[in-house]
Nucleic acid binder design. Sequence first.
DNA 1: AGGCTTTTTTTCGAGCCTCAAAAAAATAGT
DNA 2: ACTATTTTTTTGAGGCTCGAAAAAAAGCCT
Lengths: 413, 413
Amino acid sequence: MSVGIRHDDLRRRNRAMVISAVRRAGQPSRTEIAATTGLSHSTISAISADLIQEGILSESKASEPTALKRGRPQIGLALNPEAAAVLTVVLSLNFLSVAVIDYAGQVVAEEQQRLDTLVMPRDELIGQCMAIVRRRLQDPDLDLGSVARIAMGIQGITDSHSRAMLWSPITPLTDIPFADLLEKEFGIPATMENDCNMMAVALQWRDPDRYRNDFIAILLSHGIGMGLVLKGALFTGTHSSGGEFGHMIHRPGGALCRCGRRGCVEAYAGNYAIWRSAMGISEDAAPTDVGDADMRALAAKARQEDGPEREAYRRAGEALGFGLGSLFALIDPAPVAMVGVSAAAFDLIEPALREAIAQTAGGQHSESISFDTEPNELPLIREGCAMRALTFVDQEIFAPGGQARSGAGKNVA
Amino acid sequence: MSVGIRHDDLRRRNRAMVISAVRRAGQPSRTEIAATTGLSHSTISAISADLIQEGILSESKASEPTALKRGRPQIGLALNPEAAAVLTVVLSLNFLSVAVIDYAGQVVAEEQQRLDTLVMPRDELIGQCMAIVRRRLQDPDLDLGSVARIAMGIQGITDSHSRAMLWSPITPLTDIPFADLLEKEFGIPATMENDCNMMAVALQWRDPDRYRNDFIAILLSHGIGMGLVLKGALFTGTHSSGGEFGHMIHRPGGALCRCGRRGCVEAYAGNYAIWRSAMGISEDAAPTDVGDADMRALAAKARQEDGPEREAYRRAGEALGFGLGSLFALIDPAPVAMVGVSAAAFDLIEPALREAIAQTAGGQHSESISFDTEPNELPLIREGCAMRALTFVDQEIFAPGGQARSGAGKNVA
DNA sequence: AGGCTTTTTTTCGAGCCTCAAAAAAATAGT
DNA sequence: ACTATTTTTTTGAGGCTCGAAAAAAAGCCT
């Protein structure tokens, strides 16, 4: 619902554009920024002068080795690390991790902690999260600019406004409004992000060549999650964090899923499903937790000999393949990153996956669909949270003046 | 990568916004436009003065019956019907239909024609399309402003740039670049649109209360098609027109689909699939064409007694339900419009559909998902094409990008 | 070293655009 | 006829971006 553009919005947006260009490019000169944004040199000059004066950017006197060029040397612009800081909180199964990141994106402090998420009562889970954040915020060694934003990532379903955890496999608790709790406790704007979405955000920053406009990040772990980027933007559902790829239906009425329904992709490809299948346990049996070490042993066994273990991975690949095929029928094929412990067993999964996808509408060019694997999801999630928080600071704090408008514009095609 | 906003873009965008507000609201006053766009009265006044002077808008002296209000009466602004015209071409099975529409959206001429699309050679199919368009363009009775845009709609897959038909069920021919052909022949900008996408566009204009930001239009006909609107914008794939809902996989390795693969939703819910199932023909049998009259008779029989016909509709509903369930797992539930001849039999489909959807992740609030039916797809497709073409004229011709506009219209003392 | 060339950055005036406030216009009520 | 009310237009001010020109900061050449 685009609303009319007001004159003062213009400068705000162009400020945000300049900051974004610097964050993306590292140390671009004013000329480079003018080229990427399409704005005139004079505009860039004026805006960057403002930003330097405000302490958001700084001129990097770094000796450029590119001394071969004639003419006045370019002056690189860099983000001022001390302009602000952000804090990330990643809550995963039995594990809580916090990091403080400066405005330039460097980790300046971190703390990790084990805790029994599956059995903790509500107050204690929330209390532990608050406590670890408080410890980091009050650390006297930290003399950064004040923390301007908190981004929390969690496995599970979040609401579409990035405010609350609605449901998570790591705890029986539901509907915890972490963003509001953090904001109330510390007076710092906070968001609650879905883990797979953050993985996708991180991939986009890590490898923008491969993960640019359209790609998929799939978490192969206890459950199956997905982060989806379409046309360069994170795709979320209208009400929830969306993209519940793991709960698309693979076989109507089929194997029992952790969500209580039957036939979901996850009920064939989640860790517990692979384990259940390999062990010859009934598809109707309740899902159980399987440790990462057990899964690695299972994969090793499957590589060693052709038995039920290998068959279990084959069935997982089939489920993922048909699921991806249906997904690709909707959005057209795109690069895929497989993340999580079972991504390390992707060699066992891939053949059946490709075979299945070739039988679907989305598999028309199935050879050209490329997969990448990354066994460790936690660094990705933290990185995604950090970038999410930093770009918020870029846009909402350092280029403010936005949407304090009542006029509720009608949407315009 | 989004580029900076230039100063001259600003006026262009706000012009487009004003035109769009008028098209949407019918006869809004300047005050109403100011309210919906969020721009100031003076800006609206200046822009609308320009637009009137250029003959794009006109002040409607229509006697407003709302004479009960005090104060200076509002002057409604309306689109000038003669400012431009657009032409729509809808090509469907054995049927070709063309209409000329004035800038205000009224049909001013139309022509329809039967032709055997399934057996026509390439040259003849293209030739017939060109001929009917030429007849309309050369009609001497038409003294409208010149036709500024052609929008062609077709059942099947189009490319994501709206230039070419890639594949269609109505002809064995593939990869016909209709947009380029029309542009070369007539020198008028043209696009090639997917039928279901146009249905969705039309619904958005017809009933913006129900079909606003997120909704789904599903064509239940020979094949199963979908038009998807997310966050107010038509969703298309990255390469094709996208949204091949009918070819999501319902049962891996299942019934034979018209696309040659197995287990697609369409292979259970397309007209030919319902017919095949009701007649006791094998699921492996090649799809056959079934006439609308036959389908209506089938539905009547199914309503009359509980036999294989009713079961066929039940199975169709099940396939649609699981398919929607998987879709809703990705995008969250949204209102659905069922369009096409089998939408008239939705009473037979709905119970099994709801039962299936309730077994999926997307069906958590399955009662609240609402369906609407519209048996006739052709008017919708034409309407969608017309609106698509008109909004193009609004944005690209009457609010153009470059500085192709001299100050001829501006003379403020 | 000194002057010349090249490239980057800043400065300055001009042109637009939007906004807020004031003025003008049109009508209902008294 | 006069006042009150609401809408529309006009006007002046301020801000933004742009292009051109000037200034700055090197390397290159004699």
